[in-house]
Each structure stands twice: as structure tokens, then as C-alpha cells.
Simulated assay, not measured.
Amino acid sequence: MPASALVSVIVPGWNVAEYAAEALTSVRAQTLERWRAILIDDGSADGTSDVFADFARTDRRFTHVTHPAQRGLGAARNTGLELVDTPYVGFLDADDVMLPRALELLVGSLERTGSDVAVGQYTRLRPAGDGYASSPVQPWVVASTAPARAGVTLAEHPEVTGNIVAWSKVSRASLWRDLRFPQGLYEDQAVTQTLYTRARAIDTVAEPVVHWRVRADGTSITQHEADPLVLAACLDALRDGLAILRRDAPDVALRARIRQILEMDLPRLRALDLPPESRAAVEELAAELAERRLASN
């Protein structure tokens, strides 16, 4: 482990042997070399642990930890957080790809500005032929990051609240002192909004830092939102994030997030083939948000 490491990249994985080497190679290819990576195999039944062990054996910047049984993505990330000893922390899921300048851009921005969180863009890797191809940056991701900003607050840039994934950003490790991921699905929502509300200042990077893989095997959580249990977790997570903004953020940030959910999330969920109970749950959230939007105008 390099004593001079600036950032710890937490890389959890469960049954991702097919993709893990590409993910870890993308970390090793970073133009910023002062990193360490904490690899957590969450009780995989395939060769994920072997891939992690191989990288840790050949490059001491990688640390490999194994859960004896699967505990979930949030728990795996929390295991990594317990081992962080660097000024900054970031995340990468072990089936995604970190672009070469990601850490240079995100850590470099925080080093220059003194801000607490740096937020970058991301694209989706979608199945294409025998492999995967990157898609354009989605409009809401652009809105959260472009143009590049240095040292802004939530009041000055409320649209950043739409960038809720853990792995598109780097933050000061001090923000995580008493913050951990919840168990279950959609772990990122409440945690990310908490980071934003705790940050004294936020930087944005107006270019992609990660390719997010939408897996051809259909195992991505967002590919199963028609499942009543997955949908319920999604709706709960949206509410949890809003509750944090309502409690700790300026009203303009809450209004921005409500607008994002009404314009982005609800149309996607309404387009699913849902049973009546699930459709009613979506419309209940829509009614809640519409009422709050009217009350804040």
C-alpha cells in the first residue's frame, strides 16, 4: 500500500468474474497513480475472488477482502469504508469501467479548490453485438455537471442532486466518518444526498469519468423495476433522498430534485408493465411530489 496514496477506490463485487478484470485494469490505468483500491468480494460463487486476488498479488496498491457469504452491495462498500486511510474516497462497481483520467480530474479538482465533493459525468455501456458500446451522456447527467464548476453550494447549483450514483464522484474521507450505506437495493440515494448536504463546497467535472455497464445478462437492478419488490425499494429510496434534502438542504435543492423525479424517474416507471398495486404506488408518489411542488411555488 503506497504511503503517499491520495484516494481509496472501493470496489465491491459479487459474481462478476466476467467483468472484474476490465474494471480493475481501468483502475490500474489511471493517470493519477497515487491511489489504493480496496476490493471486496461479497461471497461470490464464481471466480471473482480469484480475479481480485490476482490483482492484489501483483500490485500492492490493491487490497483484497472476502465476505464468507453474500451481505449485499451496501455492506460490501461499508467494509471498504472501514479500511480507508487516505484523504479522499471514491467507488467503482466491479462490472463498470473507470475512464483513465477519472481520478486525475476528480481528485485534482478537490486538491485545487479545497471542496469536499467532486462530481463527474458517466455514460452507459450497453450490449452491442458481441460486446458493449458507450451511449451518450444522458441530459440529466449533463445538467448535474456542466459547465464545470468549482466550490459551489447546493443553493448555487441545486441540479447536482440529480447525480445520485456513488461511483461518479470523489469525496473527502472525513464526510464518511459516521456515514454508511444502508442495506437493501438503491443504496446510493440517501447517502449521496447526505454527502451533498454535508459538503461545504462542491466541484463538477463536465466530462465522463465512468462507464456504467447495463449487463447483457439482465442482472442490473434497474432492469428489474417492474418487480413489485424492486419498485417498492426504488420508491422508498426516492423518498429517503427527498427527506434528507427537505431536512438539511436549501429549498431550491429540494425543488430541483422533485422536478427531476417528476420529469425523469416517474415517466420511466410509468412506462413499465406494472401490476395495479405497483402502478398505484407510483401514482401515489407522483401525487405527493406534485403537491409539494405546488406548495413550494
Rank of each mutant, 00 (worst) to 15 (best):
M1G: 15
S4F: 06
S4V: 06
V7P: 05
V7I: 11
V9F: 10
N15C: 09
V16Q: 14
A21S: 15
E22G: 11
A23I: 06
S26V: 10
E33T: 15
E33P: 12
I38A: 03
D41S: 11
G47D: 15
S49E: 14
T58I: 11
R61K: 09
T63C: 11
V65E: 14
H67R: 10
Q70V: 07
R71E: 15
G72T: 08
G72W: 07
G72A: 07
L73S: 10
A76E: 08
A76V: 10
N78S: 14
L83N: 04
D85F: 05
F91N: 02
V97H: 13
R101C: 08
A102W: 14
L105H: 04
S109Q: 05
E111Y: 00
S115R: 04
S115M: 01
A118L: 07
Q121V: 02
A128F: 09
G129S: 03
T145F: 07
A146G: 00
R149A: 02
V152K: 05
T153R: 09
L154V: 05
H157Q: 09
V160R: 13
W167L: 03
S168I: 12
K169H: 03
L175F: 02
W176C: 00
W176V: 00
R177H: 11
G184N: 09
D188R: 13
D188I: 02
Q193N: 11
Q193Y: 04
R198K: 15
R200H: 10
I202Y: 04
T204E: 04
E207W: 01
E207P: 00
R213Y: 11
V214C: 07
V214K: 09
A216I: 04
T219C: 03
H224F: 04
E225M: 14
A226D: 15
D227C: 06
P228R: 10
P228E: 06
A232C: 03
C234W: 07
L235Y: 06
L245C: 08
A249F: 02
A256H: 07
R257W: 03
R259V: 02
I261P: 00
E263H: 13
A271S: 14
D273Y: 09
P276E: 14
S278C: 10
S278E: 04
S278K: 12
L285P: 01
L289M: 05
A290K: 13
A290P: 00
E291T: 15
R293G: 00
